[in-house]
Design a protein around this nucleic acid. Sequence first.
DNA 1: TCTCGCGGTGAACGCTGTCAACTACGCGTC
DNA 2: GACGCGTAGTTGACAGCGTTCACCGCGAGA
Lengths: 245, 245
Amino acid sequence: MAAVSSPVPRRERLRRATLEEIKRTAHAQLAELGPAALSLRGVARAMGMAPSALYRYVDSREVLLEELTADGFASLADTLEAAFAAGDPHDHLGRWLDVTRAHRRWALNHPVEYTLIFGPRVPEGGLVDNRVAAELKRSVAVLFRCMTEAIEAGLVDTGQVDAGLTPTMQTRLRAWAADHGVPIGPAGMAVCLTAWTQLHGFLSLETFGHLPPALGDPADLFDRQMTDVFAQACRTIAPRPRPAG
Amino acid sequence: MAAVSSPVPRRERLRRATLEEIKRTAHAQLAELGPAALSLRGVARAMGMAPSALYRYVDSREVLLEELTADGFASLADTLEAAFAAGDPHDHLGRWLDVTRAHRRWALNHPVEYTLIFGPRVPEGGLVDNRVAAELKRSVAVLFRCMTEAIEAGLVDTGQVDAGLTPTMQTRLRAWAADHGVPIGPAGMAVCLTAWTQLHGFLSLETFGHLPPALGDPADLFDRQMTDVFAQACRTIAPRPRPAG
DNA sequence: TCTCGCGGTGAACGCTGTCAACTACGCGTC
DNA sequence: GACGCGTAGTTGACAGCGTTCACCGCGAGA
């Protein structure tokens, strides 16, 4: 049943399996105890091996956490991409809701990962793992794609939005777009920024338990906010007077 | 110069002073090392006393952190209240900007406290410190006040906003308002929720270093978002001509 | 003046991350 | 098939952590 010539040597295969088990075990401990309580010794204990043996696979506790963070980002990005791919390409608002709902569901199902991901980056000035940055980009890229396609479909009057942006802002937003290699103008990026901050603000407050319990399950309020943030970008097609700004 | 009869007995005064020094020292270590690295032994070392002596003043490391969190909340609430009080009562948008800018400045100046405050609440199921909850309420109360006064001034067409809310949402929002003893209807609370999530989303991403560096100092983008969130609430009413600012 | 309690000390326990020395085993090579 | 090397794993140790305990001395109140 096994392939006659395994593509990766046995040694490497075992190594990968062990590393995988380490990450799985660490992830489990993380999920039930929180990031602060993750201990290499605990992982080693659960795996039935000596603590020092872990250092054959992991440089340090910090690096392991970083690795798990990157995995979390990847999982989120996968989820968002899947939601985007499964959405109706012609129903831009619907697909936007699909994606943001998927984001919310992921956050609620993976509170610890969400903490790792969107909690404070290490202030050590330590260069962040490249993989973390890459996965983050992949994640926001889905958001960008929702917006670009809505713009291409003529849903957003970008000229109108641009008019509300100072030259400085336009420069900043252009730099951001360039940083992601995304062909969106400042207007689209401004909408993306608003959408992203609102999405993240809601989820961060909710998953971290800062929304008042009296609100109950705020799924519908979340939907409303996500609808609004999209609709506001599109409302400028039939421009209503904007009182300020 | 000192009062002949001190209002608090000397013993109690010393105790309070020591506790204050503990918190001050802990705060300093927190600011430069982050919450994870705060150690009671380090605090004791910095104060030149034995580690065990701290336990005469503090129940545990966890409780000390909780105390510092509550202090952080109080500081933020003070800042917001001061900004509100100093604002022009007739310029609702301007005052809203004052308050949110003060919030942002506070967050940027106190990143560690912001982490403590808006990071994940302990998942221990442990009852959160009452003081923390109280100070949080005091903080959002300023936001509510901005909104109530804008509503009273007729800036927000609450009926229009209400129309976009399902009965379930209205119930939820009413419960939230009741929880805070605030005389705002569902429409106002919906606006508050949007404003709060957007405000917090932006600041959380910024202070935690998740906004792309290419954006530079996004003060103007922050202003724009805060203006928009307020303006959108007022959009449905005949727009008072208001010079952008 | 006596006594009690409070602030403070030092030692200890068990936990943590991490490192160094050492062992055993599997693989590739002669 | 024997050899040697690299690698996974071991034991043991070090320093630091939170926390507890037994003890001690001084100041305040009776």
